[in-house]
Design a protein around this nucleic acid. Structure first.
Lengths: 327, 327
DNA sequence: TTGAAAGCGGTACCAG
DNA sequence: CTGGTACCGCTTTCAA
């Protein structure tokens, strides 16, 4: 019932434990001996236990990855690319989904550390002092995605400039009743930097009066917020902090009888492919999430190898859809 | 630089290694000793290494979870629920995303087994003989989701009956040019059982002539397939094997100038919330994916506890949207 | 209550 | 080439 061990394999094959170990790790083993060991291993379906191996060996070839959710287009794209890239180098990513639970995010950092992973990648939504404290005492390569943090390697999107571009686009199209659907400032990247870029872009083109609506990243909550807003407001433009929010706004605007873009312009951020179902197509920013994931994998491996690494900013593409027109 | 160990903590605290171990595992430790150890641990930020612990201890409190993708609404919902439920019992799910790579699915089963996880949950898309071979020799509790497999505990959706309901619905609404957008028969649950249910439901209501279109689960590929089909066909109904496919069909039908549902009816399977953006709303089957995930967690824990467990079938709700009308 | 000692299942050094 | 042996960091008797 209990699993067979290397010691037993060695006995059955009539060799020493160390020889079996060498067999598995590419050391010197005579062809004849090799065949004997191979036969026994096959017969008993033996596979060396990786827990025991990790205990003594230098490498675990595991990278801990912590994500706030797996049910968002954004994280899915980053994670899939990250995953592919890590495997190319023989590393296995272990994924923990915190489901937006802050506490779990912190404990996951610690539990990965105890698990002897060689590095940790954190897809962040907000960095608290507690995060900084734990990360700094972690003694492990750590990379943070999507949020800035001093003294740590980060991979961030160019939120400010992307926001600025959208702001200018809307401003030059002479909108007058602009509504910004955004998220909490706790998310520094999206809630502050991206927002500030948008506001600056608008201001640059003479628009200083903007209605701000706060929501979380969920579809349902965003619909609520927009619906309430439309009761006593008549925007001619809605700038949404993510494509998901834009889809929520799309639905509510549609329901309220607005025509897009004739009555109201709409923009998002992200470049999700599901947005392709929208008619008219959405004007948005497409971030290169795949590149973000790949870069994270490359950098963490560099760090593990002991090479110096610098933070990176990921670019974007402006998608000129049909959801914005000149007023 | 190297991490501090229990042995060192013991020395610093002036006690034996075993006492420190007992401190962490709730054994007898005098209050005074306890305080001393606590202080030292805090000072050095000591946390017992879980790899070493797992080597000797009976439980690892880890469950291996294998998923073909994380970027689908379906798997995201299952995984999130599964995750939550496992944690309630103190277990940590370790997630490996195979990204639809069959080989990786098989190797993941083995590597989890070597990692001393206590059980494995596999979100399956197809079961090959190779799967059966490996799973049977795994000597570990294994649960398979979404596909049937003899001799193994499975949690499946009621694909046949759900398909049948959709088929009848379309048939009784007197459609005549029905097109079924489905997937490969390699996916037994969706590609065969669900399809057969649909066909039987249609036949029951007198419809035996159905165009069949095969695609994979992706949005892009499905659009291609539908676009090509519409060039020389004029369906009055499209039944899609998932909501994602339905959205792809929606977009192409729309682009081709069809009005839904006046010109063509449309149905899906899944009940994804993004489908809410569609106007008209989609007639579909809502599977209880959250329940599927929760059940998987409950059953694997039962199996670990050594209790007998039976396979389960998960129900659904028929969503009466506005995308189907009588002809 | 406590600590010495014997593992857990491998790896790695080293003498043969 | 091969096998003995000393660990890896923690748990678990068991005697004190």
């Amino acid at each position: 019932m209990t699993k067979i061990t290397m010691k037993e394999i060695a006995e059955f094959a009539g060799v020493g434990k160390s020889t079996v170990s060498r067999y598995f790790n590419g050391g010197y083993v005579k062809e004849e001996t090799r065949l004997r060991i191979e036969a026994i291993c096959r017969e008993y379906h033996y596979q060396p236990n990786s827990v025991a191996k990790t205990l003594k060996a230098r490498h675990s070839y595991q990278i801990g990855v912590i994500t706030p959710s797996i049910d968002s287009r954004t994280s899915a794209r980053v994670l899939t690319a990250l995953d592919e890239q890590l495997r190319l180098s023989g590393y296995t990513p272990l994924l923990i989904n915190t489901n937006h639970n802050q506490i779990r995010e912190l404990t996951s950092l610690e539990s990965f550390s105890r698990m002897n992973v060689e590095g940790i990648i954190l897809l962040a939504t907000q960095i608290t002092p507690e995060h900084e404290r734990i990360i700094h005492k972690l003694r492990l390569p750590v990379i943070i995605l999507a949020q800035e943090m001093a003294g740590v390697v980060t991979i961030t999107l160019d939120d400010y400039t992307a926001g600025y571009d959208i702001g200018r686009k809307i401003g030059t199209a002479r909108h007058r009743a602009v509504c910004l659907l955004g998220v909490s400032e706790n998310d520094k990247a999206v809630g502050r930097t991206r927002k500030q870029g948008i506001l600056d872009g608008l201001k640059e083109t003479g628009i200083t009066q903007v209605d701000f609506l706060e929501t979380d990243f969920s579809f349902a909550a965003s619909r609520q917020v927009v619906r309430a807003y439309l009761k006593d407001h008549r925007p001619d433009c809605m700038i949404c902090a993510t494509d998901n929010l834009a889809m929520a706004a799309f639905k509510e605007l549609h329901t309220a009888g607005y025509r897009i873009p004739q009555d109201v312009s709409l923009t998002g951020f992200g470049g999700y492919d599901v947005c392709e179902v929208l008619t008219p197509s959405l004007t948005t920013i497409r971030f290169d999430y795949e590149r973000e994931g790949r870069t994270a994998a490359e950098l963490i491996l560099e760090m593990i190898a002991g090479n110096p690494v610098e933070s990176v900013k990921i670019g974007y593409t402006f998608i000129h859809g049909e959801s914005v027109i000149e007023r």
